[in-house]
Design a protein around this nucleic acid. Sequence first.
DNA 1: CTGAAAGCGCTAACAA
DNA 2: TTGTTAGCGCTTTCAG
Lengths: 343, 343
Amino acid sequence: MKNEGDTPRAVTMRDVAQAAGVSVSTVSHVVNNTGARIGRDARERVRRAIEELGYRPNAMAKNLVKGGSRFLGLVADAIASTPFAGQIIHGAQDEAWQHGYVLLVANTEGNEEAEASAISMMLEHKVRGILYSTWYHRAVDLPAGLAEADTVLVNCYSTNGAVPAVVPDESAGGHDATRMLLAEGHRRIAFLNTRTPSPARDGRLDGYRRALDAAGLPFDPDLVVDVQPDQGGGYAAVDQVLAMRATAVFCHNDRVAMGLYDGVRDRGLRVPDDLSVVGFDNQEVIAAHLRPALSTVALPHYELGRRGVRVLLGLDVPEAGTGPLAVDCPSVPRHSITRPSES
Amino acid sequence: MKNEGDTPRAVTMRDVAQAAGVSVSTVSHVVNNTGARIGRDARERVRRAIEELGYRPNAMAKNLVKGGSRFLGLVADAIASTPFAGQIIHGAQDEAWQHGYVLLVANTEGNEEAEASAISMMLEHKVRGILYSTWYHRAVDLPAGLAEADTVLVNCYSTNGAVPAVVPDESAGGHDATRMLLAEGHRRIAFLNTRTPSPARDGRLDGYRRALDAAGLPFDPDLVVDVQPDQGGGYAAVDQVLAMRATAVFCHNDRVAMGLYDGVRDRGLRVPDDLSVVGFDNQEVIAAHLRPALSTVALPHYELGRRGVRVLLGLDVPEAGTGPLAVDCPSVPRHSITRPSES
DNA sequence: CTGAAAGCGCTAACAA
DNA sequence: TTGTTAGCGCTTTCAG
């Protein structure tokens, strides 16, 4: 921590120039080693001066003259509530960094006013673009201010499809989850879906059906039951699952799976011997640490953040009219799946 | 998303002045409604021009002339790995915002190079100060660059105590956790501490002892056992706990408690009827959703972030020479504690 | 009440 | 190879 008495006015390029006995433009050139090749001698003197004075270029001045900043805005509706938002930030941050951009992060916790002020603050800093992200996949209405900047939606999309978006591929995820079960030989696979209407609900169901279909299995509506998408929901559904004589269950998310584990155990049964289970989300704290560790499908938050900045910077160009860019949800096999017992 | 053909050069104050038929300084005055009282007429014309042209002040230009930004830097070692870092960011963000500051967030994932470049980027943007935070409470060696800015440590501290720091009050937390058990009448309370040397380990143990002491109970070293600080550690310790005939257990963290739950259940026993349990951390996904919900003590990450910016801005002034500012860890009673059964 | 003018720290022609 | 000279968009005396 510094604080050397009275405001020691930062050292500027002029100071360096003076100390090195050259002009500012010379300093500028060696600092950015721009075209003009500077003589060994001068260059060396400048370097030394910089070193001695502890000079730091002033990014704001630079941006001003360059007419545009190296900022990228990221507005998130829930940095704190879940580990998920953190992953999005992380991914965005890494990719942005790689291209010399800095992230301006704003948390709005769903508050519209905070959102508006965050956006205008970003606009005033002349951000190169804004990433607007939500912690769970859903459709959103864009705050007005966003129209003024290049925007890309992350983990959400606008209903009119007017703004580029990147979202998880729910359907492929549902397909892969189901596939994991199928691959071990399961034929009666229950699906504990959420009862909350959402892209996740529709997409995962679609994937489930496609996987069944591909395996030549009929879709049996009795096998899918809608539950509260949390531990309670999973726990409450055990009897139903057991009654339908399913040998495996695809849970809408890891929390449902966690509840299911509890219920199964309470009935003296075991995962995966008596029931194979696959989750969705790959929520570390849960999935990796349940006993047995839960096989699941990961929501690619990091990747969503990364791809978000890539399309923002024009590095990735989503096919026009193709809807949101769907990012893969990788399967994470662990130990909650085994072959169905003969019966 | 915008993009109206060829770079439509942002509207500046000059444009507004021109459109309103006044000088830039007049515009500046109405925008910031500074001293000089501007005539109704002029003020109105300016307002209209601003509106029509969609003028946005350029924060970078403003900062340049004002000689100092409204940025606060936050470097975190693990945004993604845990929900915790998110909370710190959130708290910092809220407080910063309140005082007109914007957060520049950098994730370093422990990488020294990333750290150095993050810090110098912040320095170049002339941040008002830097918050250096870690996801778990520990001592740190400060990266060199930090010396150039006002710094405060969040959830960590420098061994030499030269830099202001704000950390959780582990000892008080340990005390309160134990107190919750004591309050229900428990006298034989086991403590499953971590085996990793850390402020958390020492502090919580200290709190445990103080609580026992205050209750007139002797400290029995046989009651404290060091375990791996995760599910596995808790699970592995059940037999030991049972053997010592403890009626309650204070777990170093919620994950240990989670493992303990599993083990207890495997032995056909129940929480809290056969064993009361209290955790530490209040990791939502775990604590709130275990069955029964886990009583625990919360790590005040949000508050740490908040207080961090407060001391950075000089709003809170830690007593000199008093060491890090210790932030309270609130108890979160849920349902894993009951009176010990008569025996 | 309002405007002219001098910079903030830096880059980028253009000269020399 | 190096220096001169304009600004970037804005704030801020200081005069009118």
